[in-house]
Amino acid sequence: MAQPNPLLSGLRGRCPNCGEGALFAGFLKVAPQCSACGYDLGKADSGDGPAVFVILIAGFVVAFAALYVELVFTPPIWLHLLLWLPLTVIVSVGLLRPLKGVMLAAQFSNRAAEARSDD
């Protein structure tokens, strides 16, 4: 059986080792181990990486969309708030889980480990 692409598996929320088992036990909580292959997922930690990428991507999309709408249509401020605040939340929440999966899969594919100071 061919090894699955870990980054695509992480994007789908699947185990980066086998591509079958669930990577998450909740919305963002990483499963302790893969239900299909038994791979230990408990040591994986994405840190703040996914949140940074979400901020950059969502900020780019929403800021430029808001700027375009302002320059072309010049709506009142209440309409901007009505449009862009929910869109910001939707884009941010929608991107967070896939990007966390990709970051965890990137750790797996690069065999990264937490830096330790055992001095």
Rank of each mutant, 00 (worst) to 15 (best):
L41A: 05
G49W: 07
A36F: 14
G26K: 10
I55E: 01
V102T: 10
A2Y: 08
P32G: 09
L79F: 15
S46A: 15
E114W: 12
L99Q: 14
H80I: 12
V93K: 05
G19Y: 00
K100F: 08
D48C: 02
I57Y: 02
G26V: 10
W84Y: 11
Q107A: 01
L8T: 11
R116Y: 05
Q3Y: 08
L67H: 07
T88M: 13
Y39K: 06
V91I: 15
L8S: 09
L71Q: 10
L104C: 11
F24I: 09
F64W: 14
S9C: 07
Q107E: 12
I55G: 14
R14W: 01
F64L: 15
C34Y: 01
R97H: 06
P76M: 07
G13A: 02
V91K: 11
L81C: 01
P98A: 10
C34G: 00
P86K: 02
A58G: 09
P4E: 07
E114S: 11
D119T: 03
W84G: 00
T74A: 13
V61A: 12
C15M: 06
N5S: 14
L79E: 12
V89W: 12
G47P: 01
Y68R: 11
Y68W: 15
L83S: 08
P76H: 13
G13Y: 05
G10K: 04
F24S: 02
G101L: 04
R111L: 10
E114R: 14
K29Y: 01
D45P: 00
F64R: 07
S35I: 02
H80S: 06
L95D: 03
K100G: 05
N110Q: 15
P86W: 04
C15E: 00
V52W: 13
F24K: 03
S46M: 02
A113Y: 14
A58S: 15
P4T: 08
S109I: 13
G21H: 00
L23M: 07
F27Y: 09
L83K: 01
Q3I: 06
Y68P: 00
